[in-house]
Structure formats: structure tokens, C-alpha cells
Amino acid sequence: MSDAARRTVLGAIRHHLREARSAGDELPAVREAGRGPPPRIGEREDLVREFATRLGAVGGVAWRVAGIDGAADCVASIAAELGATRIALSDAPLVRALRGRLPASATLVEVADRDAIASCELGITSAQAAIAETGTLVLDAGMERHRLASLLPRVHVALVPVELLVADLDAAFAAYATREVPAAITLVTGPSRTADIELTLVVGVHGPQALHVVLIDGA
């Protein structure tokens, strides 16, 4: 069935495009190299400032810390304030380095079992890039197992070395011109939100209610 449908659909498209051409329509060709303006390049401190402003504007929190020790302290205090009893960790080396530095009372969930992750109050991941233009995290599932840890718990903390900041969306996608596109790239900009009931904004629906991004110098 599917092959007949495929041939019919493509045949109909070709037929109607031919009709358009014969009626004198000039149909533009796809320009193989036609690109927009090149990605913006910014000074690191400007990018950090822009990222934090944009993230703050959508209800996320940006932290800036020195080294893995600073990151561990920051995450530990977030976990303590939350009173997290179960914490999901992704498999990134940066995240695994936190083991032993988080509140001893919390159980660490390091397996990819979704029910186990769903029962955590806090999920900790890293990110593969951060976009200053929009305050966005780029989660590349080919580099880290963080699809569920960044999604199921109520609070998501992402550890991001400052070197991974890029200026804009163009730069983030340009990285894939030379790299294989993984099964999933998730862009995350702030916590989940809805305004479906009387247009009242509620932060935290199906995804996390809070997002903390810990920017690390000298990670």
C-alpha cells in the first residue's frame, strides 16, 4: 500500500509543479550553498551576560562557579535547599564527578531506568552547548544519556563549561555541518510552562518546574 501511496503522492506533486511551470510561474531553485548571515561570534564575558539575562527572562537561574569544586558546592546547596531525597545523574563525566559531593542523605540514581528517574526530585546533566541569543541549552543525545534526567524530575540542573557558550542559534546548528546528527537534539530554554487555562502563566507542567544552569570556569 505504502509504495502505491508514495508513487501517487510524488506523482501528484510533480504533476502540479509542471502545471505551474507551464502556466509561466518561475519556481526558485534550491540554492545548495545559499546561506544566511554567518554565525555571530562574541566575547566570552558578553556571551555569559547575555545567556544569563535571557535565561532569567524565562524563569531559569544561571550560576557561575570556578572549577568542579565550585560546581559541586553549587549543586549540593541546590539539592539541600530542595530537600532532594533521590537525585538522577546522567552519564557525563562532569556529572559523575559530583558523586560523593552531594548530600549524603540523598539516593543517587545512575541507571537509565525510567521509573527510577521518574521518582527523582532532581536531575543533573551536562549540556553540549549553550546559546547566548536565547538562553538555551543544547542537549545532544549522542554525547550523553540525559533525555530523561533532564525531563522527568521537577528540578533540572545542567553543568556547562563556559567554553561551550555560542553566540546564536546559527552557531549551534553550524556545529552539525561537520558532526553526525544524533537521534535526538533537545533545545531547552527555561522551565516548562503553560498558559492554557485563562491565559494564566503556570511554570512547571509536564517538564521541570525549575531549571538551574551552572556555568563553570576551568572545568
Partner: peptide, 9 residues
């Protein structure tokens, strides 16, 4: 400026 999530699959 951007919605909260984009999934590129």
C-alpha cells in the same frame, strides 16, 4: 523568543 523546548529527532 523561543519556546521552552525543541526536539530535533
Amino acid at each position: 523568543r523561543l519556546t521552552s523546548y525543541q526536539s530535533l529527532l
